[in-house]
Design a protein around this nucleic acid. Structure first.
Length: 425
RNA sequence: GGAGAAGUGGCAGAGUGGUCGAAUGCACCGGUCUUGAAAACCGGCGUACCGCAAGGUACCGGGGGUUCGAAUCCCUCCUUCUCCGCCA
């Protein structure tokens, strides 16, 4: 969530930045939060002095008891009892205020960075970079789900039988290609200095709140009722939560982690178009990169993460474009997001394969992930960033579709050593 | 799953109702000494909120309760360890 200090001291700037999201309700929420906070603070002052008086009186009672002055002690006791009733009342009011304040803060998304274009929907996203020629396919080219079945790479129906729609079964060269891509992505991340992690695929409620999936995206996660656990929708959740309630040393940063994990998403409400084949699944594989960064460095780091992903896509010989998301399309917790889309030729579609974001202090504020600032001698919130590098299914779809020939699928050179085969035919 | 024990500052470890935000040791930071280092000695050394400051308030696994007063007593949840059972 946004920092109260920031809202208090830069109210107009916050409202201005939030306006990029094109939602009228935010200024009101900001003012409500500021108002609740100031009430809470003045209440705190009142409560503190009341408690100070109680504490003092209690010590005095102790002294009186020891010196055998019972009557005086009893007198003070009743005085304290009055104070206590009052302070308990105040405490209750304060708890209510705090609850209302945090509810309000949870409803305010991150304030977009200055570079984020104002806009309502994906049509307002800004294309900032393109790479590669759009491939010209042969006359009989088909979409990936047909290729998958033709070459026996993925069995969608079998997945329906075992589980349900959106849980494909990869097999044969399909499974091996998938594994090769995972290894390739992890190797590249390792080379770039990311420490590899194998995290839990199931997280508790606190972790869900830490990275901002809860409370707003509750319905998007699979939930295990008996244990109050959630299946991860992305490894961002366990990776970033490693640093929940942690105070780092300044020279430990930036911290860089990568992980391959399956990701689980209910995708409630997105049935219908765009769900064919690998385009949208309930379970999919992803390699993620995450950084915990010094606030002064996070935007440089964001650029490096972008370069890392560009490099992956270019090595895979896939045409792609980078979009800077407009305010309306920006994720709730993000200050700025770049989406990478590859061109999937047979569908004639751009498919999102990566999303790189700087969350600034929005997540770290919830996570309470801070560092000791050596100069200022203060603890300060870190910046968190993450990006997909990369999401597997759509990459697989694009590889199959773009590299198909009359005689089979020619794999990009970089993968040959990883797969052990060059073509699928 | 059954039985028992325990959770205190970065770590170790005291503290069983009052002056305890918490002894002590180690680690860490600053200083003295030294050509330099080590050792020794001196000082500092949790987080958050309010305050110009002095200072105040909260926090001893989480939550709740008893009491004028709780790290200390009670309830509950979580976690860890030991033993038994089960199992990859």
């Amino acid at each position: 969530m946004l920092e109260l200090n920031y809202l208090r001291e830069n109210r107009d700037e916050a409202v201005e930045r939030l306006s990029k999201r094109c939602n009228d309700s935010y200024p009101k929420l900001v003012d409500k939060a500021i108002d609740l906070d100031s009430k809470r603070r003045s209440l705190q002052v009142e409560l503190d002095s009341l408690l100070a008086e109680q504490n003092l009186a209690s010590k005095e009672i102790g002294n009186l008891m020891q010196s055998g002055n019972r009557d005086a002690a009893e007198g003070l006791k009743s005085r304290v009892a009055t104070l206590k009733t009052k302070s308990q009342d105040l405490k209750q009011t304060q708890n209510d205020l705090e609850k209302e304040l945090s509810d309000t803060l949870y409803q305010i998304p991150n304030a977009p960075n200055q570079a984020v274009p104002k806009g309502k929907s994906e049509t307002d996203n800004e294309e900032i970079f393109t790479y590669g020629e759009l491939p010209k396919l042969h006359a009989n080219a088909v979409p990936h789900w047909e290729l998958a079945s033709k070459y026996n790479l993925i069995d969608f129906e079998l997945g329906v039988k075992i589980t349900g729609a959106g849980f494909p079964v990869y097999r044969g060269k399909g499974a091996r290609l998938q594994r090769a891509l995972i290894t390739f992505f992890l190797d590249e991340a390792n080379k770039a200095g990311y420490e590899e992690v194998i995290p839990p695929l199931v997280v508790n409620e606190a972790s869900g709140y830490g990275t901002g999936q809860l409370p707003d995206k509750e319905g998007q996660m699979y939930y295990i009722k008996e244990d109050d656990f959630y299946l991860i929708p992305t490894s961002e959740v366990p990776l970033t939560n490693i640093y929940r309630d942690v105070i780092l040393k300044e020279d430990e940063m930036p911290i860089k982690h990568t992980a391959y994990t399956p990701c689980f998403r209910r995708e409630a409400g997105s049935y219908g178009k765009d769900v064919r084949g690998l385009n949208r699944l309930h379970q999919f594989d992803k390699v993620e990169i995450v950084q915990i960064a010094h606030p002064d460095q996070s935007y440089q780091i964001l650029d490096k993460m972008i370069d890392h992903i560009k490099d992956l896509l270019e090595k895979l010989e896939l045409p792609y474009r980078i979009l800077r998301l407009c305010g309306g399309d920006l994720g709730f917790a993000s200050a700025i997001t770049y989406d990478f889309e590859v061109y999937s030729a047979a569908q004639d579609k751009w498919l999102e394969v990566s999303s790189v974001s700087n969350f600034e202090t929005y997540q770290s504020n919830r996570l309470k992930c801070r560092f000791k600032n050596d100069e200022m001698k203060k603890t300060q919130l870190v910046h968190t960033l993450n990006g997909s590098a990369l999401a597997l299914p759509r990459i697989l779809a694009a590889i199959l579709e773009n590299h198909q020939t009359e005689d089979g699928i020619q794999l990009p050179k970089i993968l040959h050593d990883y797969t052990g085969f060059k073509t699928i035919d």
